[in-house]
């Protein structure tokens, strides 16, 4: 068991023959991820990295039984690529692309939400990794050693940092889900946490958020409401960020009193989450929390 992606996932790469798509597809294949092909309109029938290229996602579903897609399509066409994947029956769509116009995502999100059994992760995310099974993203695979800690995060390198600390604390990762830093994303913090709460292979969860929006507060309330079934260690980036300034990620902007790091950390604490103030303490804290839980 694991969540979202595993060794049996049949993965295609949208934007397969582009620079980014090619580079990361190669890295994914090197990790022994089950990549079954890719999509580049107009290049159908050719091969790339030894795998078939299809004109449309539907062709890839029919021709290679694809059920998972990773998107590297440029921002102007990425929302369209997401909708095409959903329409073709892809079950898990992972959109890496950064810089998609918000109104495009409003449409794409509504479109995906109407499909049964279809989940979008991202956009503007590092992807999803289930160590030793599938790396469907741009993360450095070697950092993520197999284990029982699930990670949910809005950010890329901060996810790698957390995974590295977890591993150095003598633990490992079940699945790490990068949900993305945009204002409109396919899978929320709460939904990703819920997947890990229901995963028998996950014993504890690291939940990493940042300023802007209510995703972490919503997740925290859900965790408390469902009885804090597994220990959760939380961190919110942006305690020192000024109000009204966008901090890199399109969604990382403090709008009011409720979406500051301070407010989110307070809510998370009230909901029984082990909040760390310093990002340097994630690994140590998850270790201590697990030891206490087992004692």
């Amino acid at each position: 068991m694991s969540v979202l992606v595993n060794k049996d996932s049949k993965i295609i790469v949208q934007g397969f023959t582009g620079k980014e798509g090619s580079f990361h597809a190669e890295q994914m294949i090197e990790y022994k991820t089950n990549v079954v092909g890719g999509v580049t309109p107009g290049k159908g029938g050719t091969t790339h990295l030894g795998l078939p290229v299809f004109n449309t996602v539907l062709d890839a579903v029919k021709g290679a039984e694809a059920d998972t897609s990773i998107i590297f399509v440029p921002p102007a066409y990425a929302a369209d690529a997401i909708m095409e994947a959903a329409d073709a029956g892809i079950k898990v769509i992972i959109a890496i692309t950064e810089g998609i116009p918000v109104q495009d995502m409003v449409k794409a999100k509504a479109y995906v939400s109407d499909k049964k059994d279809c989940r979008l992760i991202g956009p503007n995310c590092p992807g999803v990794i289930t160590p030793d099974e599938a790396k469907v993203g741009i993360m450095p695979g070697f950092v993520f050693k197999k284990g029982k800690i699930g990670i949910v995060s809005k950010s890329g390198t901060l996810t790698y940092e957390a995974a590295d600390q977890v591993v150095k604390a003598g633990l490992g990762i079940s699945t790490a889900i990068g949900i993305g830093g945009d204002p409109i994303i396919g899978t929320t913090t709460k939904e990703a946490v819920e997947l890990l709460m229901n995963d028998p292979e996950t014993e504890a969860i690291v939940m990493i958020g940042e300023i802007g929006g209510n995703l972490e507060a919503n997740a925290a309330h859900w965790i408390k409401k469902t009885g804090n079934k597994k220990p959760v260690v939380g961190f919110i980036a942006g305690q020192t960020a000024p109000k009204g300034k966008r901090m890199g990620h399109a969604g990382a902007i403090i709008g009011g009193a409720d979406d500051t790091a301070e407010a989110k950390m307070r809510i998370m604490r009230e909901c029984g989450i082990h909040v760390v103030e310093s990002p340097a303490n994630i690994g140590q804290t998850i270790k201590e929390v697990l030891e206490t839980a087992k004692a």
């Binding site: 890329g156 390198t157 940092e161 940042e210 961190f235 305690q239 990002p279």
Partner: peptide, 14 residues
């Protein structure tokens, strides 16, 4: 990375 950059700022403060 934006998330790590914010986290680094927080760490400087701590």
């Amino acid at each position: 990375g934006a998330g790590l950059a914010m986290a680094t700022m927080d760490m400087i403060k701590l």
